[in-house]
């Protein structure tokens, strides 16, 4: 799925969060948004997800304008910073509840994804007992389990140890190879260099630099 941002501006109150951002994100690519905290990366992901709409400009998903033609991208998996789940449910039950909405996947796929992100052993543990790293892994599992066309991962390396980051990198590459369009936001340059075809630097809500990563 292709994503096109045209002169996207987002103001919240008097604060200009995103300032006239335009970019094309190709189908089946991995794009990394790089920037410091508060640069506007998370807000850009929220704009692409349809959870917020631009003050001006448009976000197009496969030529359909978000907020006009469609409310949300038709096939999307999102993990925004600090993913929220239901504390009193197990990790597995949280995923099952989410999967039940679309009814696209069965229990075997949920188990497969739990295994993929390294949570198989802890699948029946209550979410409230999860460590930060486990919560992050569950967020990643929720984002990829339905094999969506677009995957948005906001600071996915947060709270992950070295082996977790390695696993995440493998998952992201595998999802890209499956054909998903992936957008990452991170302040971790090394992680973005290892995963992203294209790295877009954001500062104060503006694109300040953009480069292709030919190592990928």
């Amino acid at each position: 799925m292709s994503i096109v941002l045209k002169n996207v501006t987002k103001k919240i109150g008097r604060n200009m969060i995103i300032n006239d951002v335009s970019c094309n994100i190709e189908n089946g690519s991995i794009t990394g948004f790089k920037g410091i905290n508060g640069s506007g990366k998370t807000m850009l992901l929220r704009l692409i997800s349809g959870l917020i709409y631009p003050t001006s400009g448009t976000v197009e998903i496969d030529k359909k304008i978000l907020g006009k033609d469609i409310a949300f991208p038709e096939s999307i998996g999102i993990m925004l910073e600090n993913p929220s789940f239901i504390n009193s449910y197990s990790g597995y039950d949280n995923l099952r509840m989410l999967a039940d909405i679309k009814g696209l996947i069965d229990e075997d796929r949920i188990c497969e994804v739990m295994d993929l992100v390294g949570l198989k052993e802890n699948g029946n543990k209550k979410y409230r007992k999860f460590s930060l790293g486990m919560k992050q892994r569950l967020g990643i599992a929720a984002a990829i389990m339905e094999k969506p066309g677009i995957i948005l991962l906001d600071e996915p390396t947060n709270a992950l140890d070295e082996s977790g980051v390695k696993l995440l990198t493998e998952i992201i590459i595998a999802e890209r190879n499956r054909g998903a369009t992936i957008i990452l936001s991170s302040h971790d340059a090394q992680f973005l260099n290892k995963t992203s075809n294209r790295i877009i630097e954001i500062s104060n809500g503006k694109i300040t630099n953009e480069r292709n990563n030919y190592d990928i």
């Binding site: 997800s49 349809g50 959870l51 469609i70 409310a71 949300f72 991208p73 038709e74 999307i76 999102i78 925004l80 993913p83 929220s84 789940f85 239901i86 989410l98 909405i101 679309k102 929720a142």
Partner: peptide, 10 residues
């Protein structure tokens, strides 16, 4: 949590 439900519901 509802955010995950909303975007999934379309």
């Amino acid at each position: 949590f509802g955010q995950q439900l909303i975007y999934r519901s379309g």
